[in-house]
Design a protein around this nucleic acid. Structure first.
Lengths: 420, 420
DNA sequence: ATTTTTATTTCGACTGTCAAAATAAATTAT
DNA sequence: ATAATTTATTTTGACAGTCGAAATAAAAAT
């Protein structure tokens, strides 16, 4: 071996990381104050100062500025805790300062919500579709139709909307706004965000649909009080999201967290992606359905809705049909392995198995969670909390709205004070 | 399903993340200027200003301060590029401002280096040991012995040293300084950093050994010019490190990136951890050795050094012995699956397979890397760069020294200007 | 009516920043 | 040799943002 025994610093080249000008997304006090008020709903200046550790004088200055910009206002409801002394004045986000829309495209139905600046849902809409790969232009047209409907429901005009975010399945690059691959869109690597921004009069953000659930958990759900957690969502595919240090982690190049395509078995089951042994080939809806088609006796009925085969499989299993139970049990074992791998690699204190269709409780049975814990038990590792969250169909769209709000407020507050 | 269709914000509770006071590790201009000079080795004020995007006046002010604190100095070597105009004055880190030591404990030998403030290696030392689980007090005594030797080699006294970092295998919690589990230490979850700081007159930092290689790559190696990359290191175990946005990622609770114990096969090969199907049970040194013991005909000879069985296996394979080749080939296939999983989850633009013992080239054969790429090929995903780095035995200790320097300079520069 | 308590605002000082002007130190042109 | 030009560095003045302390405001308790 002729590797050098020590590393000599070449003359004048120094040592240490070389990329230093990447600006870390550091939040200004203006942003922190605003976000503190938004997180609290209603909070006095003194409590903002205390919880952020900045001086009351600075809070007054910033709040005055934000009130002039009409982003905050003083609530009448004066909450008095101790009785004595000057009563605190509660601050809240002005709901009507701005409005945003969140959209989710998926295989059977697209959904949308409109929210005000404080995050209140004002209206929703959905559009039945078929799970086909359509030209991007058609997806844009569907989005416009959905936008019309949700605006009508919310009583808003297009000119009222300041930003929109849209979540879609597949590989989505949030930063560039491109969609390398999506099961709903015919073209590969299309410039989806640019197309939407051309068609619509406001800023558009796009992201992977699993990140929509993640952001929904972060903004409205169990993730609000957590700085680190993972989200796993099981639908037709298997999605995952991660929040580390209060930030959504998107992978080194924006295409990470493809849990569904991690390999859990050499030469294993065939996956939609054409390869073998991917986790999703054991756990996702389509994986269960194809096993059901092979082994199931009972026929699906009309009333079984969206996923008739899967519903029938579930009913059989519940009724005690052993082959149906075995299908769910194997999926559960593989899911446990996938969760264990998440824990080994990302080490989150909390995993949320979250989504709109969490009814197949075989997958989340105590045995599965126990197996996960057993596969990761080790000295000094605190057992990971695992929670199952069943949300309404609108979670995804609401997460998208939160993403739009996040980008919008960053935009509004990042720069200097709003000049009068 | 009785999940709510929309998420209503409870009165006064708001929406959005609640944990906002976590201070993001934002670097001040002082830190950036210092790190820029350190990264460049020698650089003029104007070039610092240009590369950081801050004004020349501010650079002058900060540099004056750092020179008064004797952390920087003006190099004589005036490098003139264009000829005309006032020649720039190069700045460099004062090598003798501070000194640090980096230590690596491992199963067969412990190593240490001492470096100056600019990262130049001044001396090294090693200590032969046996792979046993010893009381923590003994490990501390060994570290002290190693420290004596490295100081003697470098011509330094204990009082010259400002900080030390130590890397060890197993589960190590950098933030708390505790060692939940380590194959070299008898106790579980022992307060290793506290014990070392009690025994030594300077600050001590500890971390997982895989992070030492990662930091070595970030400070001295291929990672210097990269903001995002992963490191995989194969020794007796299988380690991994990740740098995202110029920061070492340690997982949500400081115990992440346990690549060796991710599951790649249900009911698979037996792992040191007692479970089955862990990646390390197919790829690590001990996994190859036990297969060699079963199938190998040739005997290991005296000259085969540290790992006689493994060396003999490698020689057989090179000589064309089919069973020996098959052992390496299977390990290569599983390694490819592990690398593919890293790519699917973390999406790094670059993976460095790095360490002191990278000579078993079967594992990194073109087929293996091709298999990795094939398992992750997808529309819109740029093919990941994979590089093999063979380092000297001191990499680990040098990475540790870099960690010590990093913490020391953070400490020195984080606070206000050094008052005169 | 006065005192006490608590929240908010105002004020002065200070740090860090930039832009622009001034200065310094070299080369090139005359 | 001297002046002009070029480039690097320093100085200066202005200004945002920040804090601590003092002042003010608005309530309850005495």
């Amino acid at each position: 071996m002729n590797a050098p025994e020590t590393l000599h610093i070449q003359n004048g080249l120094g040592c240490g990381p070389m990329l230093l000008n990447e600006l870390s997304p550091n939040r200004t006090h203006r942003q922190q104050v605003f976000e503190c008020v938004r997180a609290a709903g209603a909070i006095s200046r003194i409590d903002v100062a205390k919880s952020l550790g900045i001086s009351p004088g600075s809070v007054t200055a910033i709040v005055t500025d934000l009130m002039e910009a009409e982003l905050l206002y003083e609530t009448d409801e004066t909450r008095r805790d101790s009785g004595r002394g000057r009563p605190p004045v509660a601050l809240s986000v002005s709901p009507r300062a701005r409005y945003v829309v969140g959209v989710k495209l998926s295989d059977h139905s697209h959904t949308a919500v409109a929210t005000d600046f404080a995050g209140n849902t004002l209206g929703s809409a959905s559009l039945q579709t078929t799970p086909k790969r359509r030209p991007m232009a058609e997806a844009v047209a569907e989005t416009q139709e959905l936008l019309d409907r949700v605006l009508r429901d919310a009583g808003l005009a297009p000119a009222d909307i300041s930003a929109m975010a849209i979540g879609l399945p597949g590989i989505v690059d949030h930063a560039s706004g491109r969609v390398p691959w999506c099961p709903l869109i015919a073209e590969e690597n299309c410039a989806m965000r640019a197309a939407l921004e051309d068609a619509l009069p406001f800023a558009v953000h796009i992201d992977n649909d699993a990140n929509m659930v993640t952001i929904a958990e972060l903004w409205f759900g169990a993730g609000r009080a957590r700085s680190d957690f993972a989200v796993v969502t099981i639908e037709n595919g298997l999605g995952m999201g991660l929040v580390t240090q209060n930030q959504v982690f998107r992978g080194g190049q924006g295409q990470g967290l493809e849990l569904g395509h991690t390999k859990v078995q050499m030469d294993g089951a065939l996956c939609r992606c054409g390869r073998r042994g991917c986790l999703e080939a054991y756990v996702a809806d389509y994986a269960l359905e194809r096993e059901a088609a092979t082994a199931l006796l009972t026929k699906a009925t009309e009333e079984d809705g969206d996923r008739p085969v899967l519903q029938a499989l579930f009913k059989s299993a519940k009724a005690g049909h052993a082959p149906a139970q075995a299908i769910f049990q194997r999926a559960g074992r593989y899911l446990a392995a996938g969760l264990a791998n998440i824990i080994q690699l990302f080490d989150p204190p909390l995993i949320l198995i979250s989504g709109a269709r969490m009814q197949y409780d075989y997958l989340y049975a105590d045995e599965v969670l126990a197996a996960t814990r057993e596969m990761t038990a080790q000295a000094g590792r605190a057992p990971v909390e695992i929670e199952i969250h069943t949300w309404g169909d609108l979670v995804w769209a609401q997460g998208a709205a939160a993403l739009a709000l996040q980008n919008l407020t960053d935009e509004l507050l990042r720069n200097q004070r709003v000049t009068a």
